[in-house]
Every structure is written in C-alpha cells, then in structure tokens.
Design a protein around this nucleic acid. Structure first.
Lengths: 150, 150
DNA sequence: GTATAAAGTTAAGCTAACTTAACTAAAAAG
DNA sequence: CTTTTTAGTTAAGTTAGCTTAACTTTATAC
C-alpha cells in the first residue's frame, strides 16, 4: 500500500476534528429545522446526487422500501420534496428537491461554512493559497473516485 | 471579512464532498453496530472531548437531562460507558468510555480512514506532502479555535 | 397472452427517543 | 441551620422510524 506515515497522520488528525464538528452541527441544524436526521439525510442525498427513485433511497439508507416511502411521504407533505411519476417507467417515481428543500440545504451549508470562514480568518494569505490548492486536489480525486464503478 | 474567493470556493467544494461522505458512512456504521445515532453521537463526543458529566451531554445535544440520563443508561448497560460518582461533587456523575467503547470508536474511524487511503493512492508524493502540510495547518487552527472561550 | 418480477404504497404493530412531572440527594446561599 | 439551587433519576405518555405482510400497478419473460 501507500507508504506515507506523515500523510496518514495529517489526514487522520484533520478527520478527527472535522468529522466531530460536522456531525454535531448537522445534527443540531436538522433538529432546528424540525426535520429528523433520516429525513434530513434524504434531502442531503438528493442535493448531492440529484434526482432518484424510491428504491435508491431504500438501498442507500439500508431501509425497507416501505420505510423509504413513508419518510419521503413526510418530506413531500412538508413541501421539501417533489414526487412524480417516472415517464419511462410508470411504476417508478422520480424524487426531486423543491425550491424550499434546496433553500433549506443551502441554509444548512451556510452555517457550516461560517466555521470555515472563522478558520480562514486565522490564516495568512500564503497559507490560504496552499490550503486552497490542496483541497482542490482532494476534491478532484474524491469526485473521480466516486464517479467510478467502485 | 476575509477576501479570498478562491479559498472559499475550494473549502466549500471540499466540504460538499466530505460532509456528505462522512455523514452517510457514520450513519451506516452506527447502524451496523446496533447503536442508534444519538447513542453513537454520545460516544463520539466522549472520544473527542474526554470525560464529562451528565449535564454536558444534555447541553451539547440539546435534550432534557432526563433524555440524557436514559441514553447514557443504555450505553452503560451495553458496556460502552462507565458512569461513576464525581468525587468532588457527589451529585454529579463522571462519564467515561470503557475499553469496549473506545474500541468501537476506533473501529469506526478505521473504516472512515480507508476512504482517505484510497484517495491517497491516487496522489503523487508531491501532492501528498502539500496536502499533508495544508491539513496540519487547518487542524492546528481548528483546535485553537475550539480551545477558546467562543 | 399469461406468469412473474419489480416499484411503490398502505396498515398494523414494535421499539427507542423524546417530553413533562414528580422525585432524591447533595451543594451553595442566606 | 434552613432555604434554594443544582445534578441526576424514574415514570408515564407521545411521536417517529422502522419492520413485516398484504396489496396495486406496471413492466418483463416465456
């Protein structure tokens, strides 16, 4: 495998801080909106991956189709999600974020970003450039990896 | 405020990828261990911040003391947490991870790290060094920020 | 064309996370 | 020393997420 203990150490240290922070803040944000974690996670999923069918929800969250249907139903009722028939397969449904749902997610991200802005304020311009480049590389590689068959 | 649109863009792009990924994977991991998200979050909190009292749990998760007590009780019963009397204040309790709890968290992190190892495999050595340095800066600043009064 | 499989829904019932309210016990204030 | 505040627990009841089972509707296989 990859031999680079320093890299591993740096990555893990950052993940420790960042994961704790982001888990907690999403949790509190979801709560403040009145949505449950599972409901909120579905919106996040839609935001990240785009429109999908009911079965994808059920698979990705590892719940039964029945559970997915019920969760989605609540989100439709609260106006976050649009559920329409798939024109290519009339059994299937197409799930999409509504404007309201998109707005909610956006707001959540804004709050998350604020923390990073605080961090940013403590950096020199040179550090910002370095970090910016580094994160761009990571984002690119992460997206490549995600795009692949697995 | 900080004027650095490129930095902001890079950070946000990375957060998009990373937050989605880590939320989902923690969720699935917690589920696979048989713990609920709230229970698991308490273990994470203890891991990150160290021992604390019941009231800290209740405050940080924004639930009533009653709810905190009940959640902690389940974790004690499943052997993840130790709950003992605070020697300085006999009303208060001290919550600590047990070895079993620590092991569980560690295992969760290992799974999370695997993704980053995959990423790492796609980088050149130069990129690894650059990213490593960048993340170290971020970790340091993040910890400084956290240590402060707020 | 009929049989089977797939996508999703609905209903009934279980469990766990919450809440409020009433309580115990110890610390701090007066 | 009494009063009040603080830390935590217990009990009862509500709600939401989940499951299984039975069902409808559309697509696919033979």
């Amino acid at each position: 495998m990859t031999k680079s203990p320093q890299f591993t150490r740096s990555i893990r240290s950052w993940m420790d801080v960042f994961m704790h922070r982001s888990m907690r803040s999403w949790h509190l944000f979801a709560k403040s909106t009145g949505l449950s974690i599972p409901q909120f996670s579905i919106l996040m999923q839609l935001h990240h991956k785009g429109a999908c069918g009911m079965s994808e929800i059920s698979e990705r969250f590892e719940v039964t189709p029945a559970a997915a249907s019920q969760l989605v139903d609540k989100l439709v009722q609260s106006g976050m999600l649009q559920r329409e028939e798939d024109p290519h397969d009339r059994r299937a449904k197409l799930l999409n974020l509504t404007d309201k749902g998109r707005e909610l997610i956006k707001q959540g991200f804004e709050e998350r970003y604020r923390w990073m802005d605080q961090l940013s304020g403590r950096l020199t311009e040179a550090e910002r450039v370095q970090i910016s480049e580094a994160l761009d590389i990571l984002s690119r590689v992460a997206r490549d990896l995600e795009a692949e068959p697995v």
